[in-house]
């Protein structure tokens, strides 16, 4: 548990950091960033809450079991999307330019871009993003738990 100044700033900044991280994951195929970078930003928001409030208060906000479920979902979705294109090759982009989900044809050249393009890349970006945010968040949470356990002895 840190001082009141740190806790007030955390209350203001926490939601903004989470929204920025999910924005980076969502727009990975249009702007710089992607799954790994966005997941790291979201995990840094989790670390901010954990540092500012201490393990005992923050563990109710961040459930460890939810994080492990998220990590499993991310890994399975990544492999599953990769296997769905096995008709041609592993990691084949079967949704691009198909007209269905994320399948709009893109404009060639320099343009601001359309969110509904790029085929399987946004799906993979979300899968990797969930995996990275759950993995790094659970690393920080486990370290805080281990240090608290060492204090009690």
């Amino acid at each position: 548990m840190m001082s009141k100044i740190v806790r007030t700033i955390t209350n203001i900044l926490y939601s903004s950091i989470l929204i920025f991280g999910f924005y980076i994951i969502m727009h990975g195929h249009l702007t710089p960033g992607g799954g790994f970078q966005g997941g790291a930003v979201v995990a840094s928001g989790i670390a901010l809450v954990l540092i500012a409030y201490g393990y005992d208060t923050a563990k109710d906000w961040i459930k460890k079991s939810n994080l492990s479920i998220l990590e499993s979902i991310g890994g399975l979705a990544f492999i599953g999307v990769a296997f769905l294109g096995i008709g041609t090759t592993f990691f084949y982009n079967f949704l691009a330019n198909s007209g269905t989900l994320f399948g709009n044809p893109t404009v060639i050249g320099i343009n601001p871009g359309d969110l509904n393009t790029a085929g399987v890349l946004p799906l993979m970006s979300w899968a990797v993003g969930l995996k990275v945010l759950a993995g790094l968040g659970s690393i920080i949470l486990l370290m805080a738990y281990g240090i608290k356990k060492g204090d009690e002895k």
Partner: peptide, 27 residues
């Protein structure tokens, strides 16, 4: 790949196995 960001198209499409290995390292 109908992607505007060429870096993401390399990371998730052309070099997908690399990202798979990265996810394994994180796990």
């Amino acid at each position: 790949t109908s992607t505007n960001n060429v870096v993401t198209s390399i990371v998730f499409d052309y070099r997908g196995f690399d990202t798979l290995g990265e996810a394994t390292v994180l796990f």
